[in-house]
Write a protein that binds this DNA or RNA. Structure first.
Lengths: 188, 188
DNA sequence: CCTACCGATCGGTAGG
DNA sequence: CCTACCGATCGGTAGG
């Protein structure tokens, strides 16, 4: 379901993968919509386990904190690219519902990050022209969409193995996020 | 079809919008697959009209050229966000086919852009740590995905009108692309 | 360009 | 958790 999207994956197909009959799925969930909600809630709620430990654990400077959060973001989606694909599809198919779920699960953490950015701007370590809230949205969306689709966009690299392409693109997106965030003195 | 994706849009629905019957569509196109190909070819071939004039028209410095190409990229997709949504869906549903079409229509222009980047790196105006090919892919993908979905990600901006949010996100992504590309001396 | 129809598949229900 | 079945809709064809 994650790979091809909720709407394009029939209950029969899901049942086959689980090894039961279609009607049996509708015994555990009242309908397909409820199953979709459960899958999304399960995926998004994992962020509430991952993110807190990043912020509460250590005292870090801005660059180290950037690397920790960015690494976690990239790892979360590269560990299972279907997560990214499902979220991208949901955002296009049912923007309102996903918006509500994001507000519920990850928005507090996005606010924490944009707070750090504004703090860094006050201290001069982060570029003054960064739009903190927009930056966070753009970077999350960039990681999401890159993992969801860019591994397949290998047409620009003749004959290069897919794994190598993926690594180059991920490295480049992290570099872009870093270089466009910090003041040049910190950026080195 | 562009808005909800090829697979999720039935021939009956398309027929209703055009004002004819479903069977009449299958008189003009041998099957649904052929219709999809025609829609994609039509959209991607427009790039072959837009891009050449950007590169051949004027002699520009690096920053001016960046602004021209980036502006065209953003304008192309914001003019009709359904273009971006269709491409994002196709990239997830049929990566191989889209890869071939992109190779056919827009790859030459992406090579031109990455050539300019390498040239700028030789002259010192562009950061040495930019991965030219990966940068182009990331930026195109970023524009695509941002337009396709970010306008709907307005949950971070309480009560702010959608149009204002869209502008902030587009401005921020252009700023990120610019700041992570040019050496600090050129960057202002 | 139409009406009429095809087999296949969809989400969901009845009943056990 | 199953078999059996429902109406709706899908892409596509026949025939005019």
């Amino acid at each position: 379901m994650a790979a091809r999207g909720c709407d394009a994956t029939s209950l029969s197909r899901i049942a086959d993968e689980v090894g039961i009959r279609k009607a049996s799925i509708l015994y555990h969930f009242p309908n397909k919509e409820a199953l979709r909600q459960a899958v999304l809630d399960d995926m998004l709620s994992r962020w509430n386990e991952v993110l807190p430990r990043l912020f509460l654990a250590t005292t870090q400077d801005g660059v180290a904190r950037f690397e920790a959060v960015m690494g976690e973001l990239v790892d979360f989606f590269t560990a299972d690219p279907d997560r990214a694909r499902l979220l991208v599809r949901e955002q296009m198919d049912r923007p309102r519902e996903l918006r509500e779920k994001v507000s519920q699960y990850v928005r507090p953490w996005m606010d924490v990050v944009s707070g750090y950015i504004k703090q860094g701007q006050g201290a001069g370590s982060i570029r003054a022209d960064v739009d903190a809230e927009a930056y966070v949205i753009i970077v999350v969306n960039l990681a999401l969409c890159s993992v969801a689709s860019i591994a397949q966009a290998s047409m620009l690299f003749d004959g290069e193995p897919d794994e190598s392409i993926r690594r180059r693109c991920i490295s480049e997106l992290v570099r872009m996020a870093r270089a466009s965030l910090f003041s040049e003195s910190e950026n080195g």
